[in-house]
Design a protein around this nucleic acid. Structure first.
Length: 303
DNA sequence: ACTGTCTCACCAACGGGCGT
DNA sequence: ACGCCCGTTGGTGAGACAGT
């Protein structure tokens, strides 16, 4: 069988050189490596053949390194230190001291609803950690999670299945929102009213929009529909008009702070949207990733 | 004589190559 | 994909050899 290289191609060889350098006898080096003297002698013999150098020669009562080993001693020690410290010892994760930046994909709505709660919880559990909220396109989510550019993606992504794990955080219910003194809309809305009211649709409501299209679309639709990509921009529009917005229920308090607006109950049958956090299987057991997932879950599910 | 190293014979495990 | 063959590796114990 061919070997990969003619020189040092095994970690054991580095360990042998290090041990003999340190202990200066094959017997003691063998004890330190927990092998027999004979086994270590064999390994040394193989290494001698490969490197074409005696490596260690007996001088007096000890094995002295040749110039080649003397020259290799420092890089070998450095390499083994790196392997021990950074490869063999799994990086520890301590929430109390971590300064890690967690990249979390949330849409605009999530930024309003989820991020403040997570931040509040992180102040207690990981006071030096940072959260970066990113709005990553649906197409980019899987590669970003896989490459570690994202720690978790939160939202309604029914198409994300392969190679991702997911956990449901909560279900989102939707309400209508209109100005306080809207002349024609009361506390709840019938399907017939929904057909005739001028609608401003916000992002993050893909499934709702589909439902609306099915129920209200085509020839049945009597009023106009406007698409508004920025949720919070709905507030001034609705406050100054008779239009109605459809937003997730959790946003109502934020809208009411911005303008004199009120919630309206929508007709029965409107779907409830499960909001889940998604992460890549590569990071399933990663301590930091597990921490932020748990923090997000707790932040959204604690009473 | 004692201690440490090397060599020999042998064994088990592993992995690549190959045929099925 | 699986089993077989075979070379390599890494181990053991025993004994030879060398230095103190």
């Amino acid at each position: 069988m061919k070997t990969l290289h003619n020189g040092i191609d095994r970690l054991e060889f580095l360990l042998v050189i290090e041990a003999v350098l340190q202990h200066r006898t094959i017997t003691r080096a063998a004890q330190a490596l927990d092998v027999s003297q004979s086994a270590l002698s064999h390994t040394l013999a193989r290494l001698r053949t490969r490197l074409g150098d005696p490596l260690f020669v007996r001088v007096g009562g000890e094995m002295r390194p040749t110039p080649l080993v003397t020259r290799l001693a420092e890089p070998i020690g450095r390499s083994l230190r790196i392997i021990r410290d950074e490869v063999l010892s799994p990086p520890s994760f301590d929430p109390a001291t971590t300064t890690r930046v967690f990249n979390v994909c949330v849409g605009e709505v999530g930024a309003f609803i989820i991020v403040p709660r997570v931040l509040r919880l992180l102040r207690e559990r990981a006071p030096h950690a940072h959260i970066v909220a990113l709005d990553v396109s649906r197409r980019e989510i899987v590669p970003a999670l896989e490459e570690g550019r994202l720690d978790v993606a939160i939202g309604y992504y029914p198409e994300l299945k392969t190679s991702l794990y997911q956990q449901q955080l909560f279900t989102r219910t939707f309400v209508g929102i209109v100005r306080d003194d809207h002349p024609r809309i009361g506390q709840r809305l019938t399907l017939r009213q929904l057909r005739s009211v001028a609608l401003v649709r916000s992002p993050g409501t893909l499934a709702i929009n589909r439902w609306l299209d099915n129920r209200l679309g085509g020839a049945d639709r009597e009023a106009v529909v406007m698409e508004m990509p920025y949720v919070m921009a709905l507030a001034p529009i609705l406050a100054e008009s008779d239009w109605m917005g459809i937003v997730t229920e959790e946003l109502v308090p934020a809208f009411r702070k911005l303008a004199p607006l009120r919630a309206v109950e929508l007709p029965a049958g409107l779907p409830r949207i499960p909001v889940r956090q998604h992460w890549h299987r590569r990071y399933k057991d990663d301590a930091a990733n597990r921490f932020i997932r748990q923090a997000i879950y707790d932040a959204l599910n604690e009473a």
